[in-house]
């Protein structure tokens, strides 16, 4: 899809479990099913429209700790929220500061999301 690249800053990324992630895990973390599930980001219809995205399009997600490519999927989320299945891909966006608790902040990560334009790279 051509057109200007729109960036939405200030998304709140929530990571969590999904049934598909839990079932595909047992096929091996190298399996396509697992890899696709943990590489998928869910966005609201409003956000997808604003970013000029269709389901299956690729996006770039950046946090203060890293940057990843992901495939987008429509979901019934608030417009400021993005959701990813927990896994190695989302963990590239999460910092290691545990604020003295041992627990990293795996939910509520501020991220920037852009429509990915480099079509040649595999997600």
């Amino acid at each position: 899809m051509s057109g200007p690249v729109i960036v939405i800053v200030g998304f709140i990324l929530i990571t969590g479990r999904t049934l598909r992630q839990g079932t595909s895990l047992h096929l091996g973390k190298g399996s396509d099913e697992y890899r696709i599930e943990v590489t998928t980001v869910e966005l609201s219809e409003h956000s997808m429209k604003k970013l000029g995205l269709r389901e299956g399009d690729k996006v770039r997600i950046k946090s203060a700790h890293g940057s990843i490519k992901a495939i987008c999927r429509r979901s019934n989320l608030p417009s400021e929220v993005a959701f990813m299945s927990c896994g190695y891909r989302a963990n590239l966006l999460i910092g290691s500061d545990t604020e003295g608790t041992g627990m990293p902040s795996s939910k509520g990560i501020m991220v920037e999301i852009t429509r990915e334009t480099e079509e040649e790279d595999e997600v």
């Binding site: 927990c86 896994g87 963990n91 590239l92 999460i94 910092g95 290691s96 545990t98």
Partner: peptide
Amino acid sequence: VDLLSRKEVDVALIIASDPVSSLPAQA
């Protein structure tokens, strides 16, 4: 997460877990 991100250990024995997948990459 704290021990690994501060690089304070010199050997890791991992039992029935997959920290490379489940911990922040920085750690």
